[in-house]
Amino acid sequence: MLNRKGIRRNRRWNFGLPSLLVVLALLAAGLALSQTQTAKEVKCTPEPAKLNPYTGNPKAVQEGRQLYFKYNCSGCHSSTAAGGMGPNLVDAAWLYGGTDACVFESIKMGRPKGMPAYGSLADDEIWKIIAFLRSLYRGPQEKAVW
């Protein structure tokens, strides 16, 4: 968009620099906006972080299951997290990223297309719910890199 031709034309109109600045400012604003939007969706660590202290811990998985029901997660995602009103949480497809950090943030902060924010849950409770979800994973093993 900002090719030489455009700049030349601006120069001829004799208010080239301010005009260019406006264009740049608009572009920057647009970029910032798109960055915020992107950030909202994948602010979490994109690569596997293995943050969850409870992954594979049977007691925590059991507690996570109880919390999953208590906080009505089952109402949207079904009793075995196989999907319902909300997405299935047992395969390798994650709308907002599947790493521990991403899933944690999805629960804590919510997501724009319907996932409510469970900001009042203790971090520990969220990690146990995630441990429960990991125990139900049915996708390919090579994609189980959380």
């Binding site: 079904s78 999907g83 319902g84 299935n88």
Partner: peptide, 20 residues
């Protein structure tokens, strides 16, 4: 149709509130 929309695993009968 949520069975299709959410790609619920066909072998977990509890998916989509048991509709699967």
């Amino acid at each position: 149709g949520l069975v299709v929309i959410q790609d619920a695993p066909p072998d977990d009968p509890y998916g989509v509130f048991g509709v699967v």
